[in-house]
Design a protein around this nucleic acid. Structure first.
Length: 593
RNA sequence: GGUCCUAUAGCUCAGUUGGAUAGAGCACAGGUUUUCUAAACCUGCGGCCCUUGGUUCGAAUCCAAGUGGGACUACCA
């Protein structure tokens, strides 16, 4: 059906034309604030110059015109320069009838936009387990992928694993030296944690060596390069690059442990990928492109033989794209990988990188280079940049042991959910398996909502001492509301799928219908801005409104049969909208809790 | 030095392209259940929207300068 905004736009445009001979194309309506009567508000200040009338008079003119000529407009009032318009009950009712049984409220049909988008997220290193910062990344990437799907795009979720390089060799070397063939099986440790243990061990021993060297009179920078462990590590990297069998086998074995560990964490968080890239395969990419760019004079060779690009005209600096020994730097492979992906998926229109904001500069440079190389899709590349997760004492530092481990945190959340659930004692008939699932649903719901409700680009604070709340503006609050609605629906002793020809709804019921109506626009907006927080804030608002309604009116005990049926249907549609919104955030909603 | 991000209640955060008296949650004080799940609902308390100037009918929002916080500016990844 035609949207309310479109109806109003057409009518107001005609009104301005007929009343004042103004041809307006940019008429904007906002939601009427709740302290005033009305559904949509037109601000009349913009028209006072041309009409030479007061804002109130303009409002009066347009309002009267609408009331007379637009049958969907039921009423209007004017407060200063604000024309508040109420649409007819018929409009809202017919809207409600059109969505009340729809399971896809607010969402567009799959692949209806004809646009294919790749979302890269996760991108871990294989030398340590995932931490809280990765969780923000996972949640954002996964949620944005969902939101883009809900906007009708085809989405390819990918991860690129940083599985090679000096830092990987560190944990390998430490394990070789001091590991005594320890395995995940023998130690009972999750693979990624085991490898992380040796990464930390390396750093500890390495620091000792540096101190010794400094004690012997070396400068710190010198000591860092001369330390035996570092030399051994570099030797190992050379062996790896030369394909030395023992080294490669060790690398494969330890990376295998890490992947098993990551897989568990991904599953617990509830995220997945359509394809995984490995840097050990992609780090070669990009070199030929540099040669082509040299030929086209986009890059230039410096005196020492390295290749660079001058971006000073763009407000950036000179950037090296190939070392003097001909080897790649990081951006070389990023250039190559991006080009590969567009070749691999010819329908691809956009590439989204979910990476922390410390790499803002890197991506600016990358996109600029791709643009200069002549790829017109470069302008569609987008860095989904997000702020760091900080602890009360500041940034997390893996070496200082102040990281919040992802697995530990999830476990804690599940435990808290279990504790709270047991305290409340509402799910006595659940089986053990159902209980475990419920704890995971609520615990991860709390964590996910906590992280996703914050605007991605802002840094966020996480205080481990104050565990994440389950009351108020939280995931469990929304999940609870959903479960409560479902409980009412289960208890309904009547069929309630009728079409409602006439219902006089009260102001809270109307407010809920309007919230449901708004969902579609919120999905669109969050898709355009890659912002799950809009969905999170929206779902909180509709949930709060429903709870007010629930408290003030009874559904099952309503005596007027027609109103009872309508309320049941309204509850059902609310639950569906809440579930859909939460689903976009990657948060499941329980039937009971 | 340069570039970018950020600043809103005691704390954590909202505030769609500029619009009405700036909103939530937590915390704090009080109230609501023989009635559909109280993980809920209601009331109260709480603000120089960092500062100063500018743009205009109108600025938390846009522009400029400054201040505080953060990130980046590698032949690291």
């Amino acid at each position: 059906m035609i949207s309310a905004e479109k109806v109003l736009f057409n009518s107001v445009q005609k009104a301005l034309q007929e009343l004042y001979n103004i041809n307006a194309t940019d008429i904007i309506f906002q939601k009427t604030r709740k302290e005033f009567e009305g559904d949509f508000t037109l601000v009349t200040f913009p028209y006072i110059k041309e009409t030479k009338k007061s804002p109130e008079q303009v409002g009066q003119d347009i309002g009267t015109y609408l009331e007379k000529n637009e049958k969907q407009v039921a009423d209007f009032n004017i407060v200063k320069g604000f024309l508040n318009i109420s649409l007819s009950n018929d409009f809202w009712l017919s809207y409600f009838n059109s969505v009340k049984d729809c399971t896809t409220i607010g969402m567009k049909d799959a692949n209806s936009s004809g646009r294919t988008v790749m979302v890269e997220y996760a991108s871990p290193n294989t030398n340590k387990p995932l931490h809280l910062g990765h969780i923000r990344n996972l949640l954002l990437g996964y949620s944005v992928a969902n939101i883009l799907k809900a906007n009708g795009h085809k989405v390819i979720k990918v991860s690129i694993v940083n599985d090679r390089g000096i830092h990987i060799c560190k944990s390998m070397l430490a394990w070789k030296k001091w590991g005594n063939n320890e395995t995940p099986e023998s130690s009972g440790m999750k693979g990624d944690h085991l490898v992380g243990k040796y990464y930390v061990l390396f750093d500890k021993e390495y620091k000792k060596q540096i101190e010794e060297l400094v004690g012997a009179g070396k400068k710190k920078e010198e000591a860092e390069k001369l330390a035996l462990l570092m030399l051994e590590c570099q030797d190992m990297l050379l062996k790896w690059e030369a394909g030395d069998k023992a080294t490669v086998d060790l690398w494969k074995m330890m990376n295998g442990w890490v992947y098993e560990g990551f897989a568990v964490t991904y599953k617990t968080v509830g995220v997945d990928f359509d394809k995984t890239y490995y840097e050990s395969n992609t780090y070669i990419l990009g070199k030929e492109i540099i040669q082509e760019g040299l030929a086209k004079n986009i890059f230039y060779r410096k005196e020492n033989g390295s290749v660079a690009i001058d971006l000073t005209n763009e407000g950036l600096d000179e950037k090296i794209v190939l070392r003097s020994d001909g080897t790649s730097v990081y951006i070389t492979q990023d250039i190559g990988t991006a080009i590969e992906r567009f070749k691999e998926f010819p329908a691809l229109k956009q590439l989204i990188y979910t990476v922390g904001n410390e790499q803002d500069y890197h991506f600016k440079v990358l996109f600029k280079i791709l643009n200069k190389l002549g790829y017109d899709w470069a302008k569609e590349c987008y860095h989904l940049s997000y702020g760091m997760v900080e602890l009360p004492e500041g940034k997390m530092k893996s070496r200082e042991g102040t990281v919040v481990d992802a697995d530990d945190l999830l476990k804690e959340m599940f435990d808290t959910a279990e504790e709270t659930t047991k305290d409340l004692g509402k799910v006595a008939e659940f089986t053990e398996a159902e209980l475990q699932e419920l704890y995971a649903t609520i615990g991860s719901g709390a964590l996910k909502y906590f992280m996703l409700k914050v605007d991605p680009k802002k840094k966020m604070l996480f205080n481990p001492k104050e565990s994440i709340d389950f009351n108020g503006n939280t995931g469990p609050f929304i999940q609870y509301t959903h479960a409560r609605i479902k409980s009412v629906l289960r208890k309904a002793d009547v069929k309630f799928d009728a079409f409602f020809a006439t219902v006089e709804f009260n102001s809270l019921e109307k407010e809920i219908i309007k919230w449901i109506y708004d969902f579609k626009g919120v999905v669109e907006e969050s898709g355009k801005t890659f912002s799950p927080s809009l969905i999170a804030n929206y779902v909180y608002e509709i949930t709060k409104t429903f709870n007010r309604f629930y408290h003030e009116y009874s559904i099952l005990k309503e005596e007027d049969e027609n109103i009872k049926l309508f309320r049941l249907q309204l509850a059902k549609a609310s639950a569906q909208t809440i579930a859909n919104a939460m689903n976009l955030l990657g948060i499941p909603v329980p039937e009971k809790m």
